[in-house]
Design a protein around this nucleic acid. Sequence first.
DNA 1: ATATTTACCGACCGAACGGCCGGTAATCAA
DNA 2: TTGATTACCGGCCGTTCGGTCGGTAAATAT
Lengths: 180, 180
Amino acid sequence: MLAAAVRLFNERGYDATSMFDIAESLGITKSSVYHHISGKEQLLQMAMDRALDGLFEAAGEVCALDLPAPERLERLVRRSVLVLAERFEYVTVLLRVRGNTEAEQHALARRRDFDAIVTDLVKQAQAEGGVRPDIEPATAARLILGMVNSLTEWYRPRSGGAEAIADALTRIAFEGLRTA
Amino acid sequence: MLAAAVRLFNERGYDATSMFDIAESLGITKSSVYHHISGKEQLLQMAMDRALDGLFEAAGEVCALDLPAPERLERLVRRSVLVLAERFEYVTVLLRVRGNTEAEQHALARRRDFDAIVTDLVKQAQAEGGVRPDIEPATAARLILGMVNSLTEWYRPRSGGAEAIADALTRIAFEGLRTA
DNA sequence: ATATTTACCGACCGAACGGCCGGTAATCAA
DNA sequence: TTGATTACCGGCCGTTCGGTCGGTAAATAT
């Protein structure tokens, strides 16, 4: 049922999806939906949590590795792509919330925490050398994560392996498009 | 008035912004708003057009230049950042629409056209050499544009010049983060 | 001074929404 | 078999929304 709701949220947007729509897509009535969940917002909350938990799990594992910072950064970027692909619809929901409710604001705060982890990794990588120091760590982190998060706009789980995308993305992020 | 509406659209989302909200922020009543415009959707339409027109103007100018493809690609990426910064709130609105109405679908189609222009530029750049050929042009274009578009999520017009961001972005896109 | 246009308003409408309630039918444990 | 739990439903409620309508007052034109 969460899956059905999330699919609709992504098709038409959270606000534009009614409880009736969700019920209809499950072949039951609106009342029956309320037998299983407490309200529309709970569905949103569950979706966002599923996305955030995946991201933080990846961050925790990567940060625990005993590797040079640039290597950890690259691994976290790659892992983020894979998490996004794996929990695609949940992350898509997450990346679209605007902070209209308390639950959404809490999710935004967790996103900022994740950003801070990546920013810190960039800073470390610059200090250790191996990552160019002429770009502000926060800017670099946001641009790279922006690239990762943009997957929600066009990546479709069917369209080839996430690994290929992760390769292309990390290649651009760390080596750039230019050959000459 | 368009500016006021767009600001609210970006603060709370299009659906979550009522005509009353817009009227209130202008110090007039809802009825008065309808004296100036035909409906909520028209405001959205105008906002999206303003964003798309800027993007296509940039694309038209850059494509007309007599330069190597890699150079044109880099210039278009940079110009896109500047357009996004200049028409920040309008582009933000544009990048959030999900295609729920006919007008939104038309806007999505125009966005795809813009993507196609960038994709084509990447392809040309690969053919001429100067851009790595081991990444699918469509993938590269989407990742780079994703990076550009992510600005709507964190860039704030006050926070320093757009040129600095454009520099950082094109540097990452074309040369990558790595130094070693 | 008069006529016309422009900007605005209060009151209202129908539709859609999230959510609630009382009741029913199936499932399952004893 | 019976009692309780689970899943489900139709119908309803209060609210909010986008949008309309008839009318008023100020500005502008003649």
